[in-house]
C-alpha cells in the first residue's frame, strides 16, 4: 500500500486480487445482494485510490481497508433509506428463496444460518463477520472500530449467543 500511496497506483491491482473476494463476501453477508456488493467493492477500491494519501502505515492495510468498507456500507444504507420505500426495506432478503432442489440438509442449514445472520443487529454482525470470515484479530477489529478490545470480545460473545438463539428459533420454525 505504501507503494500505491507513493504513486505506483498499478500496485493496487495486487491488493485488489488479494482482498476483493473477502470484501465481496463481507458486503454480501451485510446486504444480501450480489450486485450491490459488487458495486460496494468497487467503491472501496475507488476510495482507496482517492484517499491513498491519508494512509500512514501505522495500522495494517486490512484495518484501514475495512474502515473504508464500513464507511461505504453506512453511506449505502443512508442512500438506500432515501430511495427505498419503507415496506420494501422489510422484505425478506434473497437468501430466503432457496430453490426446492437445493433442500439438502447441509444447504438448508447454511440458508437458515444466513437468515439468522441477517437478523443480527448491524454492529454485532459486523464484528462477527470480521472475526470469523475476514480472519481479523480482535485487536485489529478494536482498532478498526475505534473501541477497546474488551468490548469487541464481549460483543463477540453476545453476538454468537444471540445468533444461536435466532438460529434455533428459525430451525424450530422450518422443521417441525
Amino acid at each position: 500500500m505504501e507503494e500505491v500511496r507513493d504513486g505506483k497506483v498499478e500496485r493496487l491491482a495486487i491488493l485488489f486480487e488479494r482482498h476483493h473476494i473477502m470484501l465481496f463476501n463481507f458486503f454480501l453477508r451485510l446486504s444480501g445482494n450480489r450486485s450491490t456488493s459488487e458495486d460496494l467493492v468497487q467503491e472501496v477500491f475507488f476510495r482507496i485510490l482517492k484517499y491513498r494519501d491519508t494512509y500512514h502505515g501505522q495500522s495494517k492495510f486490512i484495518v484501514w481497508m475495512y474502515q473504508i468498507a464500513r464507511n461505504v456500507h453506512v453511506d449505502h444504507l443512508r442512500k438506500q433509506k432515501q430511495e427505498v420505500p419503507l415496506d420494501a426495506q422489510f422484505e425478506e432478503p434473497a437468501v430466503a428463496e432457496t430453490p426446492a432442489i437445493e433442500r439438502l440438509s447441509a444447504e438448508v442449514d447454511a440458508a437458515v444460518l444466513k437468515k439468522a445472520l441477517d437478523r443480527l443487529p448491524l454492529r454485532k454482525r459486523e464484528v462477527l463477520l470480521l472475526s470469523r470470515f475476514q480472519e481479523m484479530k480482535y485487536r485489529e477489529i478494536a482498532e478498526l472500530m475505534g473501541c477497546d478490545i474488551g468490548s469487541i470480545k464481549s460483543t463477540i460473545h453476545r453476538a454468537i449467543k444471540e445468533l444461536g438463539k435466532i438460529y434455533f428459533e428459525l430451525q424450530g420454525g422450518t422443521s417441525p
Binding site: A13, F16, L28, R34, V41, Q42, L49, L113
Partner: peptide
C-alpha cells in the same frame, strides 16, 4: 462458531474485476 465455518465463500461475477481494471 463452527457452523459459521460451513458458510461457503461466494465468488463475485467477472464484471467486478473488469470494472476495477477500467477504473484503475
Amino acid at each position: 462458531w463452527t457452523k459459521l465455518g460451513v458458510l461457503p465463500k461466494e465468488q463475485p461475477s467477472g464484471s467486478l474485476r473488469i470494472r476495477f481494471y477500467e477504473m484503475l
